[in-house]
């Protein structure tokens, strides 16, 4: 639980840890029903049993362009205004290394 909270970058109080842990047990027990779902098996190329898709996923690309002014554009000012800490229009963060 503590490991999960650290991975998720969430600080929890002692009482809350207990409460969430007991909720999680009940919920995970319920969603564990997924194990009973039968998947129509197919031996894949690497010998793995997997479900076959009848469609092909594909990538959707677009050019990365700076947004101009006017409709549909970003407001640079609004973005900068909301930085918790800024210096010379740059986002200021704590030392990382």
């Amino acid at each position: 639980m503590e490991n999960l909270a650290e991975l998720a970058r969430i600080e929890l109080g002692e009482d809350e840890k207990k409460e969430i842990l007991s909720d999680m047990k009940v919920i995970l027990d319920y969603v564990n029903q997924i194990q009973e779902v039968k998947i129509p098996a197919k031996v894949g190329e690497q010998g793995r049993v997997d479900v076959e898709s009848d469609y092909r996923p594909y990538n959707v690309w677009r050019e990365d362009l700076p947004a101009g002014a006017g409709e549909g554009s970003f407001s640079r000012e609004l973005i900068i205004e909301q930085f918790p800490d800024a210096q010379d229009n740059f986002l200021k963060v704590k030392k990382i290394l």
Partner: peptide, 18 residues
């Protein structure tokens, strides 16, 4: 994140991490 998120959000974030 600990103070900003409500209880259900925190719960689902942890369940998701799990």
């Amino acid at each position: 994140r600990g103070t900003g998120f409500g209880k259900e959000s925190r719960r689902r974030i942890l369940l998701g991490a799990y």
